[in-house]
Design a protein around this nucleic acid. Structure first.
Lengths: 357, 357
DNA sequence: CCGCTCCATGGAAACGATTCCATCATGACG
DNA sequence: CGTCATGATGGAATCGTTTCCATGGAGCGG
């Protein structure tokens, strides 16, 4: 377990430690010294310890990655993108799973702070307030998939919706229309999929099939999709679920049971889509005859499903890769710019013309 | 970005740094001193920097986690288990994705070594030789899902199989029967699913349905499953694929096309199962009429598939959680003991009686 | 031949914690 | 009352690197 230190290399090469350090980190040195040091280092199999370096530089290399749930293949793919970029850069990645819970997220941020990790890629759970301290303290944060925003609030124009609609104090106070509630995209660097365009084309497609009562089955926490859906449907029915398969199923099941006149559903993620298929099957709603379904996020099994699911595909892996690039390139003082990646509507077999009613 | 250091806390509390350190890490101190120090630390919002501690202790806290591919939900679930255990312990986790490639794995091991991460959970890609140096250098390694072994070799008793069967020098040399080629489980700590039992019951189930020509569609690298299958079927047909969806599809498609008399397939993982369904569909093989399919690893979409897939479920999340427990508890010098978790055959709709021939 | 610049070089000071060890006070016991 | 044990305490060493700074030699122009 004895580690070779720079001191031993210096001694063996007959030079000072400073010279070894310089040679190894690309500083100036005479050709013959450089060669000798490199030879000795290779022969001793010397690898500089990140510990010493980190302490001296008062920062840990690499980056942190915070996602809601690695069980969701979307985040799995996103994480793969991040890891892949990090690996080519030889940087370590500390991964944390927040469960979509701001509290756990805060804990993990604290952990990263303690580790002096100053570059983070996050699919945020908490709002801007949760992230402001970290950013102000010098962390370079790049958000992926979504920006930190107030959690989307469940809500519908259908008064028959059985869901309780909590009073929204903000709205009551300032009387802003709902879609303005999503905080104006703050000046935060982010790599996002073009949700709005994806949702708009999906809604247009469903409208084209004759659907009028379109519902959105979304995630709390993904405010932008909810906002985009409301914008596209003029405040259509929205039902939200927490990050968990059980919650998703409950939400989907509740949506179908309480809103029999809904003929088309847009699921805001693959877990929600899965829940929707399951719940529909359980309630004996046939897809696409009784119910048209579009799912956000293309996954391999969408094709295996019966019927194959029409989806809005997102470049999950690229989101992660680009975010990692941004956070790595952000060596300077300036903040990285944001990136918007395209989505695509892939039509398979889960949508049909509106038949009933 | 100014960080509060232990020195400032000591000064503010009117004590020495040693005392602060002792108080914060549970050493002895007089009650009043302890209280004062704690109060000051809380007031200054002091968080000890992991950097200093790590350097002094010559080890990085937390653990490393190496998996083949986070895109595969099995590893996603496994990773969630690890992260969940690590979070309760407040430990950071460095995650790397090997792509099932020993070379990339070696690089990542090097990276962890450089970071002085001395506790690692790994789904190994390389063989025992790849891991021996790391272990000998003092790393505590707990393997998950599989042990490091020689890559399983593709092979069949059916001479009509179109696959090239490379000469196996080892076997030629010592003349051991094939199933003995899997290295005798070395004395390595690991958390594994009971592959052998799972495969045995699956094969028995298929036999009970009348199937004689059963093929295994497996991963290179998962030698134990291949061995278990050979044992259960008396060296039945085995086709292997690398860790990638494309390779899996190619392998499945090749298997079906070259071996028309195969009536049942056991897929060694969810990616392979997915590939098998896809390939079967492409070749117009109806499941379960023309082909019975059992997939290793239960995934949410197995139920959504048409037909719903009969699977051998494994407690992926528990595998990860238990592995993390082991690696964390291994503070002492003794190696952690291995753990074997049960699998379960879940019968759904992808297997039927043998009809053709 | 002097003085200047430029470069290679090594010693030593950080970085922020833990931990060894010496010191000091206090109380107990002979 | 002296001695010893005990426990709290702070100074200083330590971990392995990077980086600042001083030194010294070489090269060059005047």
């Amino acid at each position: 377990m004895e580690r070779v230190t720079i001191k031993e290399v210096a001694e063996a090469a007959g030079v000072g430690v400073a010279t070894v350090s310089r040679v190894l980190s690309g500083g100036s040195a005479s050709p013959e010294t450089r060669e000798r040091v490199l030879a000795v280092a290779a022969q001793l199999d010397y690898r500089p310890s990140a510990l010493g370096r980190n302490l001296r530089q008062r920062r840990t290399g690499g980056m942190g990655l915070l996602v809601p749930d690695l069980t969701d293949t979307f985040y799995g793919r996103l994480a793969e993108g991040v890891l892949s970029c990090a690996r080519t850069a030889g940087e370590p990645v500390m991964v944390g799973s927040t469960g979509g819970d701001p509290e756990q997220e805060a804990e993990l941020i604290g952990m990263l702070l303690e580790q002096s990790v100053d570059r983070v890629i996050a699919v945020p759970a908490g709002g801007p307030d949760a992230w402001a301290p970290a950013i102000r303290s010098g962390m370079t944060v790049v958000f992926a998939d979504r920006l930190p925003g107030e959690p989307a609030s469940e809500d519908s124009e259908d008064s028959e919706s059985g869901y309780d609609e909590p009073l929204d104090e903000l709205e009551a106070l300032d009387g802003l229309p709902r879609r303005a509630r999503t905080p104006a995209a703050p000046d935060l660097p982010a790599v996002l999929a073009d949700d709005r365009a994806g949702i708009r084309t999906a809604v247009r497609y469903l409208r084209g099939l004759g659907h009028r009562e379109i519902a959105f089955l979304g995630n709390t926490g993904h405010a932008s999709r909810v906002a985009a859906f409301r914008e596209a449907t003029d405040d259509g029915l929205v039902v939200l679920a927490e990050v968990s398969r059980d919650a998703a199923y409950a939400a989907a099941s509740g949506l179908f049971q309480s809103n029999p006149d809904v003929t088309a559903v847009l699921a805001g993620g693959n877990v929600l889509g899965e829940a929707a298929v399951l719940a529909a099957r359980e309630l004996d709603l046939r897809i696409p005859r009784d119910l048209s379904l579009i799912m956000f996020d293309d996954v391999p099994w969408a094709e295996l499903c019966a019927p194959p699911l029409t989806v809005i595909s997102q470049p999950a892996r690229d989101l992660g890769y680009r975010a990692a690039e941004l956070v790595l390139r952000a060596d300077g003082r300036r903040r990285p710019r944001s990136v918007l990646l395209p989505t695509e509507l892939i039509i398979r077999g889960s949508c049909g013309p509106r038949l009933k009613k």
